[in-house]
């Protein structure tokens, strides 16, 4: 399934959850709930022990998933077990991709990812300078490689990314790590302006937590929104309160719907340039 196609007709809603948080079965139900709620693609985190780009919310999700026994092999099973019909993007750190299989480098991991039906990758600790081998493997197996454009990314670095990016570009709305914030960051519009003429869809993430927030981001020009921590918060709260999986799944589905509707409203607000 093409990632880019997810953005074709209307603003895309791209949620993130860590696979296996807080346990394998619940996590399957949660990801499927997001799809029911209107997700157009899903970033599915493969937990790594040193998630340096994540804020505390997602970091704790990763710890819960690892403690519940998530491994790389289990992750691939998880993807195969999922009953969703939207593209799935593997979000993880480079060491796990690099170590997999008996051949050195990212190729075995990407081959396996293609086999189980993943559509692409986001690798927060792999800047464009180090991404050559993964880009090659993605090309070989027909997967996309998403890059993150930070508020500080400019000039040559922007060009290097533009040459390698496919699927969509992840626009980081503010500095720092992932995490839900109340205010919309100043950087969104400026960052979008810098990559205005790029061909790939632009999805804005970092700190989006409500439908209104999603609306504002889309009306500022984003082709889609990426939401992680606000959803992981729902999983965490359900886990702490020992709530039934179906209840938590329903909350996630409702939140997904709110975010998707917000994104759609944002598109309506936007002056159409034909």
């Amino acid at each position: 399934m093409s990632l880019e196609a997810s953005f074709a007709d209307e603003p895309a809603f791209v949620p993130y959850l860590a696979a296996g948080d807080p346990d394998y079965e619940s996590s399957l139900a949660y990801v499927e709930a997001l799809a029911r709620g209107g997700a157009d693609a899903i970033e599915l985190g493969l937990p790594f022990s040193e998630p340096i780009a994540e804020g505390s919310t997602i970091q704790e999700a990763i710890v819960r998933a690892l403690e519940a026994g998530m491994t790389v092999d289990r992750y691939f099973e998880f993807v195969a077990d999922l009953d969703v019909d939207v593209p799935l993007v593997c979000m993880t750190y480079y060491n796990l991709i690099y170590q997999y299989g008996d051949e050195q480098g990212p190729r075995p991991f990407v081959r396996k990812a293609a086999e189980v039906g993943l559509s692409g990758f986001v690798v927060p600790d792999l800047p464009a300078e180090e991404a050559g081998p993964l880009r090659d493997a993605c090309d070989e197996f027909g997967l996309d490689l998403v890059f993150i454009v930070a508020p500080t990314t400019e000039g040559e670095r922007l060009e290097r990314m533009r040459e390698q990016v496919s699927g969509y570009v992840y626009v980081q709305a503010r500095l720092g790590t992932t995490g839900a914030r109340d205010e919309v960051s100043d950087y969104t519009e400026r960052s979008l302006a810098r990559i205005e003429d790029w061909d790939v869809p632009k999805a804005v993430g970092f700190g989006i937590k409500s439908g209104d927030h999603a609306e504002r981001i889309v009306s500022a020009g984003a082709d889609g929104i990426i939401v992680g921590s606000a959803l992981v918060d729902i999983v965490a709260e359900g886990h702490e309160n020992d709530d039934a999986t179906e209840e938590v799944a329903q909350r996630l589905e409702d939140k997904a719907r709110e975010l998707k509707q917000g994104a759609l409203r944002g598109a309506g607000d936007r002056p159409r340039v034909e």
């Binding site: 800047p127 993150i148 508020p151 990314t153 670095r157």
Partner: peptide, 10 residues
């Protein structure tokens, strides 16, 4: 090498 989040590269 330099395996760091994009925000740190500049």
């Amino acid at each position: 090498g330099q395996y760091v989040p994009e925000a740190l590269m500049p």
